[in-house]
Simulated assay, not measured.
Amino acid sequence: MLKNFTGLYNSDQKLRFLKEEYPNELTRKTYGSLLLQLTKFEEFYKKDLCDFSYSEAVDSLIGLRKKTFKSLDVAQTIIVKYINWCMNEGYSSTGINSFKLLNKEDLQKLVHQIAQKESYFTREEIFEMVVDIVNPIDKALIILLFEGVRGRTEFEELRNLKNSDIFISSNTLLLTRDNGDQRVISVEDRSIEILMNAMEQEYYHKGNGEGTGVFATPKLRETDYLLRASDNGKNMNIDERMAVPSINTRFRAFRSFTGISFLNPTLVFQSGLLEKCSIIENESGNIEPENYRQIYRDMNLDDKNWYNLKTMYEMYKKNIASV
């Protein structure tokens, strides 16, 4: 369903494009979110993307604030495909795909300044990132960290999450620490869809689907834990949960095939914290010390360290403003 994208500029036109070109619903939602981000530029220039001039195309790409070449390259590819579709359908009045005129070097220059200032990810960047990740379990690992699933030590909430702790009808997760403490969080539809796919995954595709040889697609362990390792045939007397080193190893692989050299579990988790701060400030006009403390309490973290979050958020805002 694409009911959340009725706010798109020329929504009927763009919804038709998404439905015709992207049969996968999760992909449609992710790319629809990108087009929705561009709506403010279309409203400002009072024209559809397919009629943007070169300078307007550059301004809108900068305005997306993509901090890596990979994310901006993906955005440009989607926009170019949309405009080509518009030209074929007779929607473009100029017949020129201005976004296509920017080459790889141009894109690298656009992201360079922002990349130097911003090291955190937005929600949409996270979902754009996982589109190109093959294994649903790997997608889930990144999404869960951004949604705030971690715990205090050794990724305990991540590693303890079971399929039976995922409540699809209510979009909620029951999280458990090693000491037995529990909490319930709500996540969005796209996250639930990724978790459902991870629950159903039976084989792991090494090398993000590019592995070769007889061990390229090992069977995953049959366990109720969502994050699980490959079955090595020695499941007796071992912890069925994914090991901590395995999580770090996965992220080393993610850095390789996403092209994001600074991608790591802590950064993804902190990005989710910053989103919570931003939501509070946008809704109330400011953010107080008690808000930071409450975020930590909600995340099952020690609220005595709330000032660390305040410092991180203020630096984050300062860096964005200086770009």
Rank of each mutant, 00 (worst) to 15 (best):
E125N: 03
L38P: 00
Y9E: 10
F17N: 08
S33W: 03
S230T: 15
S169G: 09
Y316C: 10
L35P: 05
A216D: 06
M315E: 15
D178Q: 09
E25W: 11
S33Q: 02
E118R: 11
E240K: 04
L2R: 04
Y203M: 14
K219I: 09
Q182R: 11
F69C: 01
T249K: 15
V74W: 02
I320Q: 12
D302T: 13
M312H: 00
E314G: 09
S271P: 06
I185W: 06
N88W: 08
P289M: 13
K109E: 12
E275W: 01
K276Q: 12
L26A: 10
A216Q: 07
A57S: 14
A321H: 13
L110E: 05
G207K: 08
D239F: 08
D73K: 13
K100C: 04
E21V: 08
K104Q: 13
T258K: 05
E20P: 01
T172H: 07
Y204R: 06
Y9N: 04
F257A: 05
M315H: 15
Q270K: 10
L145S: 02
Y91H: 10
F269D: 04
S271K: 02
M1L: 03
K304Q: 15
F127S: 01
T223C: 10
L35F: 07
T122H: 08
N235S: 13
E193Q: 14
G259C: 00
L263I: 03
N84L: 02
T77D: 12
D51T: 09
I295P: 00
Q76I: 10
V74L: 12
L35E: 07
E156S: 02
E314K: 15
S93V: 11
K81L: 00
V74R: 06
S71A: 11
V268Y: 01
R190T: 07
R16Q: 15
R28D: 09
D12F: 07
L35T: 04
H205P: 08
E281D: 13
N235K: 05
S186I: 02
K318M: 14
L110K: 08
V187K: 08
V214G: 09
T68C: 03
L15D: 05
K47E: 03
L309F: 00
I185K: 05
V130R: 05
F41C: 12
T77H: 09
L144D: 06
L267C: 00
I260A: 01
N179H: 06
K3Y: 13
I166G: 01
L36F: 13
S33A: 11
K70P: 05
L72Y: 10
L110F: 07
